[in-house]
C-alpha cells in the first residue's frame, strides 16, 4: 500500500472519525477509490452542505437549519413542556417514538465528577435562562440512568426547583420483554422507586 500518498491521507482522515479503526478506514478508502466519480462527488457535496447549512438551534441546541430547529418552529408542539436530554441522539430516539409533543433542551453532555466535567461545561445556565424567559411549566429530565446522568438530574432539580415549576425524571426500571429474575440489583431498586399506582 502506498505509504505517504493521498490514499494514505484519506485513511488517516477516516480513522479520525469515531468508531472507525484502521482496517475499516482502509476498506472505506478503497471503496471510495473504486466507486464512480459522481457517487464520491455526491458524498463531498452532502458533507459540505451539512457543514455550511446546519448549526445549533438558538433555543434548544438541537440541530437546526437556521436560527430555530424544526421542533421549536412547529406551532402545534406544546411549548409549556421541555424534555432535557444529554445529546441530540437521545432527542432523535425520543422523536422516533412519536409519543411526545412538547419541546426539548439539549445539554452539551452530562456532569461527570470522575472526569471533572462541571455545570458550565454542559451549559446548564442556558436552560435556566430559557426557563426564566419562557412559558415553560414542566421540565422532564431524560438523562441516562448512568452515574453521569443521575448526577446531572440531581443538579438540574436543585437548579430548577426555585422556579416553582414541575420537574420530573423519566422512569428507570426493567426493560420491556425482560424477565424480572434476570434484572440486576440496581435496576430492580430503581424500578421499585419509580413505581406508580395502577
Amino acid at each position: 500500500m502506498d505509504r505517504n500518498g493521498i490514499l494514505d491521507e484519506l485513511v488517516r482522515e477516516l480513522t479520525s472519525l469515531p468508531g472507525i479503526g484502521r482496517k475499516t478506514a482502509q476498506r472505506l478508502a478503497f471503496h471510495i477509490l473504486k466507486q464512480p466519480s459522481e457517487d464520491a462527488e455526491r458524498l463531498i457535496r452532502t458533507i459540505r452542505a451539512v457543514k455550511e447549512k446546519l448549526g445549533l438551534c438558538r433555543q434548544c441546541r438541537n440541530i437546526a437549519e437556521g436560527e430555530l430547529c424544526d421542533i421549536c418552529r412547529d406551532p402545534t408542539r406544546d411549548a409549556t413542556r421541555v424534555v432535557v436530554v444529554e445529546d441530540v441522539t437521545t432527542l432523535h430516539a425520543l422523536e422516533r417514538t412519536g409519543g411526545y409533543k412538547g419541546l426539548y433542551h439539549v445539554l452539551a453532555g452530562a456532569l461527570s465528577p470522575l472526569d471533572g466535567v462541571g455545570p458550565a461545561d454542559i451549559r446548564t445556565q442556558d436552560l435556566v435562562d430559557r426557563i426564566a424567559q419562557s412559558k415553560v411549566e414542566e421540565v422532564i429530565v431524560a438523562t441516562s440512568p448512568t452515574i453521569e446522568g443521575e448526577a446531572t438530574a440531581i443538579y438540574l432539580s436543585r437548579l430548577i426547583k426555585p422556579f416553582g415549576i414541575r420537574i420530573s425524571r423519566i422512569a428507570c426500571g426493567v426493560p420491556v420483554g425482560m424477565d424480572l429474575e434476570y434484572a440486576d440489583e440496581v435496576t430492580l431498586i430503581k424500578s421499585l422507586d419509580g413505581r406508580r399506582e395502577i
Binding site: 465528577p113 448526577a151 440486576d184 440489583e185 440496581v186 431498586i189
Partner: peptide, 16 residues
C-alpha cells in the same frame, strides 16, 4: 455484583 452502593447515586455530594 456484590455491592452496588445504590445510596451513592442519590446525592451529588456522595457521587462527588
Amino acid at each position: 455484583i456484590r455491592h452496588a452502593f445504590p445510596s451513592i447515586r442519590t446525592s451529588l455530594e456522595a457521587i462527588t
